[in-house]
Design a protein around this nucleic acid. Structure first.
Lengths: 117, 117
DNA sequence: GTCATATGTGACCATATGGTCACATATTTG
DNA sequence: CAAATATGTGACCATATGGTCACATATGAC
């Protein structure tokens, strides 16, 4: 990964770019889980693979961890997701509405495959 | 990349996970550009590297391309970003507000480093 | 203390990613 | 047509990523 890369949301984007990790977050949205409990949800993955994903999520502070006895409880932290929205996605809201009238001609041709490949 | 992965937004997440590509989108938000015009903005990258990024963005349909003569004009398509928001991010809005009261204890400890590493 | 359980570490591997370079093709201009 | 410009292709490379396995450690239950 080399460097945290200025802004601070960099690791969050990386963490969110994997579907398994997004699914983990979706699960934690409904309440905290232990590492083993999470691993059970992904029968196709080894427990170790799940642990690696959790490490990536933790680095991005998308999850917070509390050790209770020999268990590790993983909690969702929604704050970084909010930041992604506020600092980047929301800037595109203007375009979703209108204002891209000049693009419309090009964008909205039913199923135009990039105007001739 | 292997497979488009069910949902359809998969390539969009991958495309957005790179800071250079997000910067390209930020530039295109202000209007279309040619490939060469974009490459000039990234003096640290070769034109070929920029072209590869554009290919990734095009695969995700985040940009749409029109060839005019010997030039290639790249247009932003904001629709996939909107879908990311609607189909995933917005599901976390509830948590941003309150409703995570049970988490608060754990989440909001000033700078707790994952409760002991 | 001993054993089972829950998690962590280290080594390793295949593929994806981000990048390079050399060269090919297409299009405008004189 | 010839030259300059704009983009595209193929081969290649280093590192990151997602995954495996074997083994180590910590904690709760008897």
């Amino acid at each position: 990964m080399t460097a945290p890369a200025g802004e601070g949301t960099e690791w969050v984007w990386k963490a969110l770019s994997d579907p398994t990790r997004r699914k983990v977050l979706d699960l934690l949205k409904r309440g905290p889980r232990t590492t083993g409990g999470l691993a059970e949800v992904f029968p196709s993955l080894s427990r170790f693979a799940v642990m690696k994903h959790l490490a990536v999520l933790e680095r991005a502070r998308l999850i917070l961890v509390e050790r209770r006895g020999r268990e590790r409880w993983n909690y969702l932290n929604p704050v970084p997701i909010r930041q992604i929205y506020e600092r980047w996605i929301s800037d595109y809201e203007g375009l979703w509405a209108g204002s891209l009238l000049k693009l419309k001609r090009h964008v909205e041709q039913p199923n135009e495959r990039s105007v001739r490949r």
